[in-house]
Computed example of a mutant assay.
Amino acid sequence: MSGGGRGTAVVVGAGVGGLATAIGLRRAGWTVRVLERRTAPERYGTAFAIHPTAQAALDRLGLGEALRARAVPYRGARIRRPDGTVLAALPLERVERRAGRPELLISRPYLLDALLAELEALGGVDIEYGSPRGGPGGGADADLLVGADGINSTVRTTHFGSRSGVRALGTVAWIGIADFETGVYGETWGDGRFFGLTPVEPGRSNWYAAVPEATTAEEVRAAFADWHDPVPRVLADTDPAGWIRYEMRHLHPALPAFVAGGRIALVGDAAHAMTPNLGQGACTALLDAEALTRAVAARGGPGGLPAALRAYDAERRRSAQRVALASRTLHRFVTGRRPALRDALTGLLPG
């Protein structure tokens, strides 16, 4: 460990949260190593929703312009029944009025590219692909160890115990990219299933679906065959070879702290993995990274770490866990088996 001045940090995980943390620490003058289990950056494409609060965090990290260069605004989204009847509007216009800027959507590879380009421009950060993800002894020689290694975080289980662990929700989700703009955005809620559409970049649309009983692309298409346009068309015109299938999971119960030992912190899914229903996974990871690195920078070198980590935990833990709880609650509401009651309650929202 370093004896004074700016410190050394090991960040485990080279996803959005890990790379943003490395950028913030490097801007604060720290020497940073990033360890990533994968042998290369992930290139699969899906849309990240970036709320204005997360946009502001990216501005503070020096990445706002890079985000806006490739992102598209998200407006005019609605909640619908399978027959196309509009139940309510998503509150995107209210968010934009209050924040003075719209929610943005960006392709995951573009955001990762922007983060990697910023790290290269800053210099002084080594990213070690194909490295262990921080088991016992990982980062032992660094002043600060940051676990940004996702829902299956080794840093979390090694240093925080196993009481809080991965829980499956029993819902299978599918995501993909359609090579045309649908012009119809938002979510459609059916009996135990839902389908979402968002813009992602000019000429393309992002889609996602949850179907509890479907295990193949054919079954997914059949589950939505009689839903309103363009849902069947999107599924018919996208190659299943490019679809991504995953089981919805979350972290439960909530961690009592995001920090440990005065030198270890968790960010992103390692700290509070949530269901994707609110589209806040990337946002919370970015907010974590910016808050952690701001707290570290404000308190100088390694001697200030205990106070910095306490400040980070106080700022982010309850906020992130509230978002995770809200997302899980929305998942239960959307996938409920009483659609008539759900639609009636949804219809009370502003249209």
Rank of each mutant, 00 (worst) to 15 (best):
W189T: 02
A270F: 08
I244W: 03
E218Q: 10
A270C: 09
P212S: 00
W227F: 10
L266F: 09
A241R: 14
H250K: 08
V200W: 01
H228W: 01
E219K: 00
E219I: 00
R204A: 13
F194D: 10
N206R: 15
T216D: 05
G190L: 01
P253I: 01
A173N: 05
F194W: 13
L266I: 06
W207M: 07
F224T: 00
T188F: 09
A222G: 08
G196K: 06
L251M: 11
A271F: 05
N206P: 12
V267Q: 09
A217I: 09
A273W: 09
W243V: 05
A271G: 08
A271Y: 03
A271W: 06
A271E: 02
G183Q: 03
W189Q: 03
V200I: 15
H228T: 10
L251T: 01
I244V: 14
M248C: 04
R193M: 14
E247P: 13
S205V: 04
G176E: 07
A260P: 06
P212E: 01
F194K: 15
P199R: 01
I175T: 09
V267M: 12
A236S: 15
D239Y: 01
R249A: 14
V184I: 15
A223E: 06
P240A: 12
P212G: 00
G186E: 04
A223M: 11
G176S: 11
P212Y: 00
Y208G: 13
V231G: 11
T238A: 03
H228K: 02
G262I: 06
V267I: 10
F258A: 05
R245E: 13
F258E: 06
A254Q: 14
R193K: 15
G183W: 05
Y185R: 05
V220T: 05
W207R: 03
T238N: 05
T198A: 15
P240T: 11
T216L: 11
R233S: 13
A223H: 07
V172H: 10
A214Y: 11
A260M: 03
G186D: 05
A270D: 06
V220A: 11
Y185W: 09
I177K: 04
G186M: 02
A178E: 04
I177A: 06
G196Y: 02
V220S: 10
I175G: 11
P240M: 08
R245C: 10
A214L: 07
T216S: 15
W207P: 09
I175W: 07
R263E: 07
A223W: 09
P212N: 00
E181V: 14
A209F: 03
A225V: 08
E219Q: 12
S205E: 04
A271C: 06
G261T: 00
R221Y: 00
A257N: 04
R245N: 07
F258W: 06
A222N: 04
A254F: 10
